[in-house]
Amino acid sequence: MKKGWLTPLLFSLAALTGCGDSDWQHEEFSTGNSAFDFRIPTNTPAPFVPEDNPMTPEKVELGRHLFFDTRLSGNQTQSCGSCHLQELGFADGIALPTGSTGERLDRNSQGLLNVAYNSTFTWGNHSLTSLADQHSVPLFAEFPVELGVNDSNKEEILLRLSQDTTYQQLFAAAYPDSNPENGSDINFQQISQSLASFIRSMVSFNTPYDRYEQGDSNALTDSQKRGMDLFFSERTECFHCHGGFNFSQSTRHSKTVFFEAPFFNNGLYNLDGNGSYPVGNQGLFELTGKAEDKGKFRPVSLRNIEVTAPYMHDGSIETLEEVIEHYAAGGRAPTTINGQATGDGRQNPNKSGFVGGFELTAQEKQDLINFLKSLTDDSFNKDERFANPHS
C-alpha cells in the first residue's frame, strides 16, 4: 500500500510521546514565509526562513562563492566545500574529516540536501536552531580547529575578500543598504547570513520516491515498493526516527509554529555498561550533563543516503547493508572501533525503544536497501545552482 508523506509524519509524532528520548521543544512566533523560489512541489511546505535573514538571490549567490572559497579559512587551505562535496550530496565520503590545521574532527560530515528543514543543526546540539548561528562552529571552533578563523586573523580574512572586486560587487548586491561598493564594510555577520542563505537554498524533491508520491506509479520498482512498506511498518520502526517528508523527525518548515527536536541513542556504544560513549563524542550529554542523554544524537534526513556513506555521527558504519544489520541486531555487538572496545551497544540503558531489533529475509533486506536508494536525488548532486563558481 502506498504511504504518503503526511501519514508517516503523524504516526511518528504520536509515537514519540513517552518514548524516553529527548524531545527538545521550541516555540516559534513567526511562520517565516519567504518569496524566494525554492523550486519545490506545490504540496510541499517551504523551508522556515527567519525574519532577520530573508532569502534573496543576491545573498544566495554571495553565499555560494563564499562556501567554496579557501580564503575564508585562516590559512587559506580549506573551504566549506572541502568537507561537503556536491557529487556526494555535500558529504565527503570519509568517516571523520580533518580541519584546516590537520586536526581530526569528532563528527562525520553530514550531507546538506534539504538541511533547511532541520529543526536543529549539528549532530548533538539542541540549542543551535539557526543556520547562521551554526556557522560559528566550523568558522571559529578551536577544539578542534576547522576553518581556523580567530581573533588574530579575522581582519586579514575580511581584507582578502574586500580587496576582491568580484566580492565587492557581490556584497554590494546582497547588502545594498549597508555595504559600499569598495567592500570596506564587509563583516562576519554578512558572511554567516549569506552562507546560511546558500545552504538554505539547497532544496530538492526530485527522487524516484518523490515522483512516486506525486503520482508516477512506475517511479519505484516492485522491490522498492516492498521496501517502502517495510520502512513505514511497526516491524522495522524506521519511520519513528526518520518520518515525514524529509525523512527525519527533526523537522521544521514555514508552516511550523511549534516543533520538537528529538535526539536518539541507537546503541552504537556502551563503554562502561552504563551508557557511555567515547569521551568528547557523547552527543547531547555534553551540553546537558544528564546521564540519560549520553549517546543521543539528532536523526539526520535519509535523503541522498545512498551517496553520503559512511554513516552515523562518527562514520563508524561503512555501508547501507551494515546499517540495516545494526538496527536488525538492536544495536552494536561488542567489537573494536579505531582500537577502542565499543562495549555492548545492544544493552545501552539509554538506547531508544525503537531500536529493538527485527528479522528480515535476504530479499526483504535488499528490498529495504533498494527503497533507501530511491531517496537519491541525482539532479541535486549535479545542479549548477549549487556548483563551485571558482572552478
Rank of each mutant, 00 (worst) to 15 (best):
K3I: 15
S12E: 09
C19L: 07
G20A: 01
W24H: 14
W24L: 10
E27H: 11
T31F: 10
F36Q: 02
N43C: 01
N43R: 11
T44N: 04
A46V: 13
E51P: 02
M55K: 02
E61F: 04
E61N: 12
L62V: 03
L88S: 03
G93T: 02
Q110E: 13
S119L: 06
F121A: 07
N125G: 02
D133Q: 13
D133E: 14
D133Y: 11
Q134H: 15
P138M: 06
E142A: 15
E142Y: 11
E142W: 05
E155A: 13
Q168L: 02
N182S: 09
G183L: 01
Q189E: 15
Q189H: 12
S194G: 04
L195C: 05
T207D: 07
T207V: 11
D210W: 07
D210C: 11
Y212A: 10
H240T: 13
H242F: 06
G244H: 00
N246W: 08
F247I: 06
K255G: 14
F258R: 12
F263V: 03
N266C: 07
N274T: 08
S276F: 05
P278R: 02
G280Q: 05
N281C: 13
A291P: 06
T308E: 04
A309Y: 10
Y311I: 08
M312F: 15
D314K: 02
G315R: 00
E318C: 06
E321R: 12
A329F: 03
G339S: 03
A341F: 10
Q347N: 14
P349T: 00
Q363T: 13
Q363R: 13
D377E: 06
